[in-house]
């Protein structure tokens, strides 16, 4: 099979889109919270650790209770515990946000790997819901409207993130904190508190993302279940120029790349799998190279704020 027709088969297969929707769901959960954290001025690289912690605690929660809602709530709590460490360390104790994030990513990877070996986790995917009518749309129907039910939490989280940032006073203060913390401080905003709260929100959505991995996409926990997708979520925020719409679009582009990686080996024999595995990350790098210089980051992104200093 030649290159072009193989690619054509891959992008017309509805299973590609089902997989893409699953990858996109995970990325969108992670990226919508990451987007708010970045708008407040933090490059929250511990989103990777938040996803993994959320995945582990949701699996543990389900193992203990056999309840999907309890599992999801445990996932949220797991993501928020990591967020708590990140937020308090970098925006109360003024530790460097990258050092804290890097440390958390390594720590949680080790911890989750260890605990997964000690605890016997039994999990499965949640019951599948299909939205009548909509799921029959050709090519995209199944991808968007036929999944295990926690998938549909996405349709709540994204509008919630938008509403918080653009329609509430809290969101206005978060944006001001990410653009000009001095001006925010002079105006009477507790900048570091808003930044901490934004990271907690990132922990909340990444925790949901972790639960999504277990109950929608994979069905069981292992320590490699996240494997760098938190970083792709960060790339999606940059790709999207720190707008929510662009971020979601970025998630879909990168998710499609991840899905094609799964699909392509069916059509190309003999292509090294390592090369195919690198494919989504190549797309990510090209996406960043194309868009990173055309967009404007929050002016105070990654700059710590200490009161009274210039």
């Amino acid at each position: 099979m030649d290159l072009v027709s193989g690619l054509f088969e891959a992008i017309t297969a509805s299973s590609t889109y089902v997989n893409a929707a699953l990858f996109a769901g995970l990325l969108i959960f992670a990226a919508s919270g990451e987007w708010i954290a970045e708008r407040s001025g933090t490059i929250n690289i511990s989103v990777e650790a938040m996803l993994l912690a959320g995945a582990f605690t949701s699996a543990a929660g389900y193992t203990a209770t056999d309840s999907f809602p309890v599992g999801i709530i445990c996932g949220v709590l797991g993501g928020m515990v990591v967020a708590g460490v990140q937020a308090e360390m970098s925006h109360r104790l003024t530790a460097d946000q990258f050092v804290v994030g890097l440390t958390l990513n390594i720590l949680i990877l080790g911890l989750a790997g260890f605990l997964a070996r000690v605890v016997d986790l039994t999990t499965k995917t949640a019951p599948r819901w299909t939205i009548p009518g909509l799921s029959r749309i050709p090519l995209f129907g199944d991808a968007l409207f036929g999944h295990p039910w926690p998938f549909f939490l996405l349709f709540l989280v994204v509008p919630l993130a938008w509403w918080l940032v653009f329609r509430t006073r809290w969101g206005l203060e978060v944006r001001a904190s990410g653009e000009d913390p001095q001006a925010g401080d002079v105006s009477g905003i507790d900048v570091n508190k808003r930044r901490r709260q934004a990271i907690y929100f990132a922990g909340f959505t990444a925790g949901l993302g972790g639960a999504f991995l277990i109950f929608v996409q994979v069905g069981r926990f292992d320590e490699g279940v996240v494997s760098g997708r938190g970083f792709i979520a960060i790339a999606a925020v940059i790709f999207g120029g720190w707008t929510l719409r662009g971020t979601i679009a970025g998630c879909f582009v990168f998710a499609l790349a991840l899905a094609l990686r799964l699909q392509l080996p069916n059509y190309y024999e003999g292509v090294p799998t390592e090369l195919l595995q690198a494919f989504p990350f190549l797309v990510t790098i090209f996406g960043m190279a194309l868009f990173a210089h055309r967009v404007r980051a929050p002016a105070a992104l990654a700059r710590p704020f200490v009161r009274g200093l210039k």
């Binding site: 509430t168 006073r169 206005l172 944006r175 000009d180 001095q182 001006a183 925010g184 105006s187």
Partner: peptide
């Protein structure tokens, strides 16, 4: 203030509302 209490990226009304309490 001289010039340091305004956030460039926000609109005039957003800047005016910044730092107040209550519903936006």
């Amino acid at each position: 203030h001289q010039h340091f209490s305004l956030v460039d990226a926000l609109t005039v009304w957003e800047n005016v509302a910044l730092g107040e309490a209550g519903r936006l």
